[in-house]
Design a protein around this nucleic acid. Structure first.
Lengths: 118, 118
DNA sequence: TTGCAATGCCTCGAACCTCGAGGTACTGTA
DNA sequence: TACAGTACCTCGAGGTTCGAGGCATTGCAA
């Protein structure tokens, strides 16, 4: 009971968006993505491997990502890159995200309604 | 099978944030909140009654909201208002949201890392 | 008067996502 | 030899949202 430490988690769908974005800039592998998100957001956002791998598999299944196995320094890695489908998907998600974030921001800042600022 | 029409849903936790924010400005009732969110965001964001009522009940249970029943024009409504606890909670959620939204925005816009824009 | 849309409240199950823990395997180093 | 780090993966629990459906009342139009 009591106020359970329910973490806000505004995260729904965000991992997919960020992963797509990162892979559009650089070919990367799962383990690397987990750390890249942490470091590039100064740990504000942190997605575990339990989230990244399933998302990676799902995106590949949908044809949004392509993968190739490479061995670097005795380490086997699976590098992912964005396909045309994935690129289109990123554009969509990105746009949707921006619209929603802007709408929310407006509500948090703005006064009553979308009244004339006069 | 095929690509399931999975709506992006970047929505996690957002309903609670918006509801708290609206109620901080005006005392409102459930049905009204549903429409207020739709209209103030130009339908960019739309939360159904199936989301609003449970959230309202949960927030009240946690002491973040106070309610009082009023009958207006033969219509019985339950008006909610934010308590001190709720106000504090809104501040927290608001801050968390801003941080995350900013971090994501940075990743979507920015180049590689947090490089000098120069 | 009948009928239907809108107002208002509420709940339930399906579907979805994320989290954290736990597993396997290999390399490098103390 | 042992442990930390790299690298992959899966599973169950827990939390949210969605959509449909239910109930009751008021108001307006046919």
């Amino acid at each position: 009971m009591a106020a359970r430490e329910t973490n806000p988690s505004f995260m729904n769908g965000v991992p997919e968006l960020l992963i797509l974005r990162l892979l559009q800039q650089d070919e990367m592998y799962g383990y690397e993505i987990v750390q890249a998100i942490r470091s590039r957001t100064d740990t504000v956002i942190s997605v575990g491997e339990g989230v990244v791998y399933p998302v990676l598999h799902g995106l590949e299944r949908d044809g949004a990502l392509a993968s190739r196995r490479r061995t670097v320094k005795g380490r086997s890695r699976i590098y992912y890159s964005v396909t045309a489908v994935g690129s289109h998907r990123l554009a969509d998600l990105s746009k949707t995200w921006s619209n929603m974030a802007a709408a929310i921001q407006r509500m948090l800042m703005g006064g009553q309604h979308a009244e004339g600022i006069q």
